[in-house]
Nucleic acid binder design. Structure first.
Length: 291
DNA sequence: GCGACAG
DNA sequence: ATCTTGTCGC
């Protein structure tokens, strides 16, 4: 049933994907387009969204795609959509969107149809925006396909355009002192591709923020700061937590070793190796928890 | 053969 | 992404 995702796509496909990224990139807007983005207190911002995918452990093709919407500035979850999906494309650095974005777009469209008033005014995406091999990461891709402002938030530095996670980079990280401290990620051409941000006082590893669509880097970093209760922005963190929980509740224990299985084994003793029986004859029926 | 490699 | 418990620290 759960086919594995496809093998590495042939060069021909990668060429098509690169062309598509280039075409969509022409539509990219890397500045603030909304009034609330320029407001010192983000007045007018009421809903922030987050998306993420979590995978079933042994299966690189089965995942739970989740979209959550939080109230701003309270950061309380007001909408959640989790759904199991079967991925087709394999993961390839530089082409993450072709693997994950179709399911995220689906989730956004479901929301737009069913509860348009709940559509978020900005989406936090787990991955990069313009900090990308061809300047068009998954956050840009999702932004263009949904026409929503998007912010790319990665947990690891994507080493592109001269950016390296070398000793100097690590030293800059070490110099990030207080929560909110940043340093620019400057590409070979001198362009600022993103910002490393210490998003939480107790986090030694920074967040790598970059523009997805319809927001400036300055606003993106400022809003990311404003949405972090812990290391990652609350919308993404909630999407992550809830997608994992959904998997655990769904496939986590389809058949939690019921007592019946144990009695069957006793009735049909297959093997009784050696003398020591490790299992105390007792039972361990996990209290069925409902809801 | 070795290093890179968002999620 | 996932494999993984306890553990050190505030």
């Amino acid at each position: 049933m759960a086919r594995e995702a496809a093998e590495k796509p042939p060069e021909e496909i990668l060429s098509l994907w690169k062309r598509e990224q280039a075409q969509l990139k022409a539509l990219l807007v890397e500045q603030d387009t909304e009034a609330w983005q320029r407001d010192p207190a983000f007045s007018g911002l009421q809903r922030v969204g987050g998306v993420d995918l979590s995978f079933v452990k042994g299966d690189s093709a089965s995942a739970c795609a989740s979209l959550v919407v939080l109230s701003y500035p309270e950061l309380e979850v007001v909408y959640e959509d989790c759904s199991m999906v079967n991925l087709t494309a394999p993961y390839m650095s530089g082409f993450l969107a072709f693997r994950e974005v179709p399911f995220l777009v689906d989730a956004v469209q479901r929301l737009q149809e069913k509860e348009p008033h709940m559509v978020p005014q900005v989406l936090f995406v787990d991955g990069n925006g313009v900090l990308h091999h061809r300047g068009f990461g998954v956050a840009c891709h999702l932004g263009i396909l949904t026409d929503l402002p998007c912010i790319g938030v990665a947990k690891k530095l994507l080493q592109v355009d001269g950016l390296e996670n070398n000793a100097q980079h690590k030293e800059k990280i070490r110099l990030l002192q207080a929560e909110g401290d940043t340093f620019p990620l400057i590409g070979g051409s001198g362009t600022v591709l993103g910002m490393a941000l210490k998003s939480h006082s107790h986090s030694s590893k920074p967040l790598y923020v970059s523009v997805g669509h319809r927001i400036s880097l300055e606003s993106a970093v400022r809003l990311t700061r404003s949405c972090c209760r812990f290391r990652s922005p609350e919308p993404v963190r909630q999407a992550d937590i809830r997608s994992r929980d959904y998997i655990r509740r769904t496939l986590g224990s389809p058949r939690p070793p019921p007592e019946q299985e144990r009695s069957q084994k006793l009735q049909k003793p297959k093997v009784c190796p050696k003398e020591g029986s490790e299992e105390p004859a007792g039972e361990g029926s996990p209290p069925e928890t409902h809801s």
